[in-house]
Design a protein around this nucleic acid. Structure first.
Lengths: 120, 120
DNA sequence: CGGAATCCTTGAGGATACTG
DNA sequence: CAGTATCCTCAAGGATTCCG
């Protein structure tokens, strides 16, 4: 879960090292449109266990891609949102999503999520 | 090393399942400009062991992204090249490389490879 | 030269339970 | 509600050797 400073042969590797986690692209994708609570993310990504989700969120926070704002009320809430740095990677997500969509389309598969790239 | 048919929540996941392998983006990247021999790939990606490299090449071949042409001569040679399908993902690689480049640039790091994206 | 076969290590990811 | 704490599994990846 640590972002180590290894030398990258290629910028592509650097990119993957930041967003290559299992649910990181998903998290970023969902936050692309609007900030979300932890619970909303959990509901949007049901396959991620709490440990996984919070782990991925911490990674993304550590590398400066998302903000984490804790609202100390009852019940406690936490808001996750993209930072400017996080937003900068949206084009990459769009590219991956576009390609993945046509790829799945060629297989006759309808993607379940990612409704947002239709605003292409 | 098998490409299984799992249901993807997101096209982004589908994309990563195909090119998410450790050296796959590198291989595709190097093949982007011209076909290459096994040995040339090995030389361009020295950190990949023969098993890794051939494994990644097989994966990419299985999913139809690269062609593998064996030239039964002495010494034997094998030419790897991108298929049309493989070429279709180049924009994604470019997006990842562009972003990774400016990311590394912000860290004051000079990427070692990827000379080709300067033709932007 | 271009791999396949084998064995091994590691850590990402998963399941479950518990806490501020 | 929003996580942390353990424990565990499994497969990606690594090292080495051997083969056509």
């Amino acid at each position: 879960m640590k972002i180590e400073q290894k030398q990258f042969n290629c910028p592509v590797e650097a990119t993957l090292s930041l967003i290559g986690g299992k649910y990181k692209p998903l998290v970023l994708w969902h936050l692309k449109s609007q900030p979300l609570h932890y619970m909303e993310l959990q509901r949007l990504i049901p396959k991620a266990t709490p440990k996984m989700l919070s782990g991925q969120l911490h990674d993304l926070e550590d590398c400066g891609m998302i903000n984490r704002e804790v609202i100390p009320e009852k019940p406690p809430k936490t808001i996750y949102s993209l930072t400017a740095f996080g937003k900068s990677i949206i084009p990459v997500l769009n590219a991956m999503c576009d390609w993945g969509t046509s790829y799945l389309d060629g297989l006759g598969i309808q993607p379940v999520c990612c409704p947002s790239q239709s605003k292409k």
